[in-house]
Deep mutational scan, measured.
Amino acid sequence: CFKERTRHLLREWYLQDPYPNPSKKRELAQATGLTPTQVGNWFKNRRQRDR
Results as ranks from 00 to 15, higher is better:
residue 2 F to P: 08
residue 18 P to I: 03
residue 23 S to K: 06
residue 7 R to C: 09
residue 26 R to Y: 08
residue 20 P to Q: 03
residue 5 R to D: 14
residue 13 W to I: 10
residue 24 K to E: 11
residue 11 R to K: 14
residue 24 K to P: 02
residue 4 E to M: 11
residue 36 P to E: 14
residue 47 R to A: 05
residue 15 L to C: 15
residue 16 Q to A: 13
residue 20 P to M: 02
residue 18 P to F: 00
residue 25 K to V: 14
residue 24 K to H: 07
residue 6 T to H: 09
residue 19 Y to G: 02
residue 32 T to L: 08
residue 9 L to R: 09
residue 1 C to F: 14
residue 26 R to K: 13
residue 13 W to D: 03
residue 44 K to R: 12
residue 13 W to R: 05
residue 9 L to E: 03
residue 2 F to N: 15
residue 31 A to P: 03
residue 4 E to A: 05
residue 40 G to A: 13
residue 29 A to Y: 00
residue 15 L to W: 08
residue 30 Q to E: 11
residue 9 L to N: 02
residue 9 L to G: 01
residue 28 L to W: 03
residue 24 K to S: 11
residue 12 E to Q: 08
residue 5 R to W: 06
residue 18 P to A: 08
residue 8 H to P: 02
residue 51 R to S: 05
residue 42 W to A: 00
residue 25 K to C: 14
residue 20 P to D: 00
residue 4 E to N: 13
residue 32 T to I: 05
residue 47 R to W: 07
residue 23 S to Y: 04
residue 37 T to D: 14
residue 46 R to H: 04
residue 35 T to D: 05
residue 32 T to P: 03
residue 37 T to C: 12
residue 36 P to D: 08
residue 10 L to E: 04
residue 42 W to P: 00
residue 16 Q to L: 15
residue 29 A to G: 08
residue 38 Q to T: 04
residue 14 Y to I: 05
residue 45 N to D: 10
residue 9 L to W: 00
residue 38 Q to D: 05
residue 10 L to T: 01
residue 28 L to T: 05
residue 49 R to Y: 08
residue 34 L to F: 04
residue 33 G to V: 03
residue 40 G to R: 15
residue 30 Q to T: 13
residue 24 K to Q: 14
residue 46 R to L: 05
residue 12 E to G: 08
residue 37 T to S: 13
residue 44 K to A: 11
residue 31 A to G: 05
residue 20 P to I: 07
residue 49 R to W: 06
residue 29 A to N: 00
residue 12 E to S: 08
residue 48 Q to C: 12
residue 10 L to R: 00
residue 7 R to M: 14
residue 6 T to Q: 11
residue 37 T to G: 11
residue 16 Q to D: 15
residue 23 S to L: 09
residue 3 K to T: 15
residue 6 T to P: 11
residue 32 T to M: 05
residue 4 E to H: 06
residue 48 Q to D: 10
residue 18 P to L: 00
residue 48 Q to V: 09
residue 44 K to C: 08
residue 39 V to E: 01
residue 5 R to H: 03
residue 15 L to M: 14
residue 41 N to I: 05
residue 50 D to L: 00
residue 7 R to Q: 14
residue 47 R to E: 02
residue 12 E to W: 08
residue 38 Q to R: 02
residue 21 N to E: 11
residue 18 P to V: 02
residue 39 V to Y: 05
residue 28 L to K: 10
residue 47 R to T: 02
residue 44 K to E: 13
residue 13 W to F: 10
residue 15 L to N: 15
residue 25 K to F: 10
residue 32 T to A: 06
residue 5 R to M: 14
residue 27 E to Y: 07
residue 39 V to F: 02
residue 8 H to T: 14
residue 6 T to G: 10
residue 5 R to Q: 04
residue 13 W to E: 12
residue 40 G to M: 06
residue 39 V to Q: 07
residue 45 N to C: 08
residue 15 L to R: 12
residue 38 Q to H: 01
residue 41 N to G: 05
residue 8 H to V: 14
residue 19 Y to H: 08
residue 15 L to T: 12
residue 5 R to G: 14
residue 16 Q to G: 07
residue 8 H to R: 15
residue 40 G to F: 15
residue 22 P to G: 14
residue 26 R to V: 14
residue 21 N to L: 11
residue 22 P to H: 07
residue 36 P to W: 09
residue 19 Y to T: 12
residue 45 N to Y: 03
residue 31 A to W: 07
residue 11 R to D: 05
residue 23 S to G: 09
residue 50 D to A: 08
residue 33 G to N: 07
residue 40 G to I: 03
residue 38 Q to W: 03
residue 21 N to W: 02
residue 9 L to V: 09
residue 13 W to G: 11
residue 13 W to Y: 09
residue 41 N to W: 03
residue 13 W to P: 00
residue 11 R to G: 12
residue 29 A to V: 03
residue 23 S to A: 13
residue 42 W to M: 01
residue 28 L to V: 08
residue 45 N to S: 08
residue 47 R to I: 00
residue 49 R to L: 09
residue 25 K to S: 07
residue 5 R to K: 10
residue 45 N to A: 08
residue 4 E to D: 13
residue 47 R to K: 02
residue 10 L to V: 00
residue 36 P to C: 06
residue 29 A to W: 01
residue 12 E to C: 10
residue 15 L to Q: 13
residue 46 R to N: 13
residue 43 F to N: 01
residue 13 W to T: 11
residue 33 G to L: 04
residue 17 D to W: 01
residue 44 K to N: 14
residue 13 W to N: 15
residue 49 R to T: 10
residue 50 D to Q: 11
residue 26 R to L: 14
residue 24 K to F: 00
residue 27 E to A: 10
